[in-house]
């Protein structure tokens, strides 16, 4: 999977499991040879920077808005995108990504309203849904299976 470009698109970091899953997924995919960029809001990227101050787990951090702008202006694109969402705004960003990017899209839907939010998704993507807020293990296990499928 060398050179396959992956974008992890983080939304509002209000729900705790986003940060740990982003670090976990970034590291797992990087170890498998993917070229991973983690894009997020200012607060979401600061959480990663403080948690992973040497950039061991997340090597490339970027601004969510700047990354989307680069894709919209055809300056860059990705092969695979994992879009984190726990609210309508997160879903809206993922819908935009679906419309402007050629990447294969995976929607990571989490938080208390995960199931209802997942039902509002009308764009083409694979949904990974877990209504967890604090404990990331169930979502981690689901993502392990998804990554296993991707590398097959």
């Amino acid at each position: 999977m060398t050179g396959v470009k992956v974008l992890l698109m983080m939304g509002c970091p209000e729900v705790p499991i986003q940060t740990s899953i982003a670090l976990y997924l970034s590291h797992k995919l990087t170890k498998l040879g993917f070229d991973v960029t983690v894009a997020g809001t200012g607060a979401a990227t600061q959480l990663l920077k403080v948690s992973d101050s040497d950039g061991y787990y997340a090597k490339k951090l970027a601004s969510l808005d700047n990354t989307l702008e680069d894709i919209m202006e055809n300056r860059t694109d990705f092969d695979i995108c994992f879009a984190f969402m726990h609210n309508d705004a997160g879903m809206t960003y993922a819908a935009t990504m679906s419309a402007v990017s050629q990447s294969r899209l995976y929607s990571i839907v989490f938080g208390r309203n995960a199931e209802a939010l997942a039902e509002t998704i009308e764009f083409d993507c694979e949904k990974i849904v877990s209504k967890d807020v604090h404990n990331p293990v169930r979502l981690k296990n689901k993502l392990d299976k998804v990554v296993e499928e991707i590398v097959k």
Binding site: G11, C12, G90
Partner: peptide, 8 residues
Amino acid sequence: YTKPCYGT
């Protein structure tokens, strides 16, 4: 205008 933490 959509903001990730505040909605649309």
